[in-house]
């Protein structure tokens, strides 16, 4: 499965309301857990895995994009949750971030994980795509950008 196969409209938040890194990760993971009927314990495990990865180094890139990610034990299929914030947030990078791709990856499918991350990275090299993502006002608009 590639990025296009795992993007879901109900896993997109526009706009994100939190203004702290930890809260944004919590918001993105919460939406994933809510849509997949996962309990608080599982949510806490996923949040911890993502924060542990962020402790090694921030996943904030240039152009205001951050791609927090982690391998999650027991996850069958990889998932991506997208969030767009109106105001840039300090995500620990050289510049602030306002576009977030949370990738939760299945431990058993490393090739798939690499391919999905690579697709996100390639998409984000396009200034036009990033500008359009930033300007999106709804989950519908964000979703549609990928399927143009």
């Amino acid at each position: 499965m590639g990025l296009i196969d795992i993007i879901r409209k109900d896993l997109i938040i526009v706009p994100l309301k939190s203004s702290k890194k930890e809260d944004i990760i919590d918001d993105l993971v919460s939406l994933y857990c809510e849509k997949n009927n996962l309990d608080e314990t599982r949510k806490a495990e996923i949040v911890k895995a993502v924060l542990d990865r962020e402790l090694i180094a921030s996943t904030a890139m240039d152009k205001g994009i951050a791609i927090p990610h982690a391998k999650i034990p027991g996850l069958k299929d990889s998932a991506v949750v997208i969030g767009i914030s109106r105001l840039p947030v300090d995500f620990g990078g050289a510049e602030k971030s306002n576009i977030f791709f949370l990738l939760l990856a299945s431990q058993d499918k490393p090739t798939e994980h690499i391919q999905i991350l690579s697709s996100i990275a390639k998409l984000c090299t396009s200034d036009l795509f990033v500008r359009m993502l930033s300007a999106s006002k709804s989950a519908d608009e964000v979703y549609q950008l990928f399927f143009d």
């Binding site: 180094a57 996943t59 690579s118 990275a121």
Partner: peptide
């Protein structure tokens, strides 16, 4: 083994070297 993508992810600062080795 897609080392091209792995290298690109390190260049884009999505992966750190430690993570690349793990993957």
């Amino acid at each position: 083994i897609n080392t091209k993508a792995l290298g690109d992810l390190v260049k884009a600062h999505i992966f750190v070297s430690q993570e690349k080795a793990e993957y």
